[in-house]
Write a protein that binds this DNA or RNA. Structure first.
Lengths: 244, 244
DNA sequence: ATGCAAATTTAGGTTTTAATAATAAAGAAG
DNA sequence: CTTCTTTATTATTAAAACCTAAATTTGCAT
C-alpha cells in the first residue's frame, strides 16, 4: 500500500445510512484482510499497531476504522485488546484471498505474467464484486488449489487445503524435497529465485550445512548444479518432503 | 450507478496534495466517461444536467466535480456553457472504454457469460490500473475490434474502428443485412433479442413496413421464420447492409 | 507495589465526494 | 424590455478515511 493506492468512489446517503450497514468499502475489505493475515501469523488477536503497520497508516486511524468494523459486526473488539474477525468478517476475508489467488493464477497461467508481477494487479482485482464471476473464473482455471507462489486457494466456503510443508531451513542434511511455496513474495526475492532456477515443483536435496553463517549447499534437480543459499533465503522457501 | 455503487478508499496526504494532481479517482473516471458519451451522442458540450442524469446525482455535485476536473486540466469548462474533454481527458475516457469492452469480450468469449450479464462486471473491471494487463488481455483475445454488443473497441491510442451501419428502422423494404450491434444495451432488450434469435451476425431481410404503427416484418436467416418488430425495437438494432 | 515506556484511544482537524437549499444567470414568451 | 422558467452555481452540511497531538491504559521491571 503506497502512494499509488487507489482513490475510490463514495456513493452516499440518498437514504439514511443505516440502510447501507451491509455495504463494505474497499478500505474496509483491506482492513479485514490485514486482520486475517495477522491473526493467522501470530495465532492471536491483531493489535492496533500491527494493523497500522500492515495498512501503512497510523494507530489512531486504525482505532477509528476498528470501531466502525465492530459496529458492523465484522470483527470482535475490546478496547486495548486487539481485534479478531467475526464469522461474517472471516467470510469476507477468505473470499478476498480466494479472489486474489484465483486472479494470480489467471494472470500467470493465461496471460503469461511472471510470478513476481502479479501481486499488485491481483490486489486490485480481488475487490471486483461478482460471485458468478468468481465461480466461472474458478472453473475456467480448472479449480486450482494453489496460487503461483504455492499458497493455498480457499474454496467458496473459506476452507483452505493444507499441505504439510517445512521451511528449507528445517530440512536435515541429506533430505530431499520439492519446492512448493515461498514465505516472502516480494519481487526481489522471486526474481532471485527465478535466476537460481528455484521454481515451484523443482526437486532439491540438502547436501551440506555450514554452521558458521547457517548457509546451506543444495543440489537442484536430480543431476542439477550445486547452489549455496543464505540463511535468509532458506527461511523463505517451503519444501514438501520426499524423504523423512 | 445505483444505491449499490462502490464506496472506495482514499489514501491521502503523506505528501502535500499537489503531488497527487495526476491521480484520478474512480469517480472522476466515471465522470470523464459520462462526458465522453454525452458529447459523442449530442455532438456538443455536455451540460451539467445531462451529466447529473448520467451519473445519477445532482447538478450541484456535478458543478463541484467539473471544477476539479477543470483544475486538473482534464476538461475544458466555461461557466454555464457545459464541458468538453481535453486531450488528456479524452485519452482517459477512451482508455476506460477500451478496457470495458475488452473485458466484456473476455467475459463472453472465455467465461461464457451471456451478453446481457457483462455490463455491470465490466463497469468494475474497467477501473483496474495496469497498462501491461490491458496489453496482454488484448493479445490473449486476439485483438478484437468489436465487443459482444457490436460496439467498436478503441486501440491503445484511442482510435475507433468505424463501421458503416444503419438502424434497422432505416432499411428499405426488400433490403438485406447483418445484425452488427445494438443501441440499447439493457438486459431487458438483450434478453428479448436472444429470445427472438436476433443475435450478432445473423442475416435479416426487411419484408414489409406497416405505416400504421411503424412496425416492420422481417425474415431471420436465409429460410428463417418471420418476425414482427415494433418501432422501438427497430430503433435499437444496427445493421450492416448487404444490399444497397 | 509503583512507576515508566509502549501501546492504544480520544479529541479535534483535513480532504474527497456528494447531498440540500438557496441564489444567480440564460433563454424564451409575452 | 420585462417576467418566467429552466439551468447552473454557491453555500452549507455530511460521511468516510485519514492525520497530529494529547490523554489513557497496560504491562513489565525494579
Amino acid at each position: 500500500m503506497n502512494l499509488c493506492a487507489l482513490y475510490g468512489s463514495r456513493k452516499p446517503p440518498i437514504l439514511p445510512s443505516y440502510i447501507f450497514m451491509d455495504h463494505i468499502s474497499q478500505t474496509e475489505e483491506n482492513y479485514l484482510k490485514a486482520i486475517f493475515k495477522i491473526s493467522e501469523k501470530t495465532g492471536s488477536n491483531a493489535s492496533t499497531n500491527a494493523i497500522a503497520q500492515a495498512m501503512d497508516t497510523t494507530a489512531a486511524s486504525v482505532t477509528d476504522m476498528i470501531k466502525r468494523l465492530s459496529e458492523k459486526a465484522l470483527i470482535n473488539y475490546e478496547k486495548y485488546k486487539g481485534a479478531t474477525l467475526s464469522d461474517a468478517g472471516q467470510k469476507i476475508a477468505t473470499s478476498l484471498i480466494r479472489k486474489h489467488r484465483l486472479w494470480e493464477v489467471f494472470l500467470v497461467e493465461q496471460l503469461q505474467f511472471s510470478w513476481d508481477e502479479v501481486h499488485e494487479i491481483a490486489e486490485q482485482l480481488e475487490h471486483i464484486k461478482s460471485d458468478e464471476l468468481v465461480r466461472r473464473l474458478d472453473g475456467y482455471l480448472a479449480h486450482p488449489k494453489f496460487d503461483p507462489h504455492g499458497d493455498p486457494i480457499p474454496d467458496a466456503d473459506g476452507n483452505f487445503t493444507f499441505r504439510k510443508q517445512v521451511l528449507l531451513m528445517d530440512l536435515r542434511v541429506g533430505a530431499e524435497g520439492i519446492v512448493v511455496g515461498v514465505q516472502d513474495t516480494s519481487p526481489q526475492f522471486l526474481q532471485y529465485l527465478d535466476q537460481m532456477k528455484l521454481v515451484l515443483g523443482v526437486e532439491v536435496k540438502l547436501l551440506e550445512r555450514f554452521d558458521y553463517d547457517e548457509s546451506v549447499q543444495i543440489q537442484v534437480g536430480q543431476k542439477g548444479q550445486l547452489l549455496t543459499l543464505s540463511k535468509k533465503v532458506c527461511q523463505n522457501i517451503y519444501i514438501q518432503r520426499l524423504t523423512p
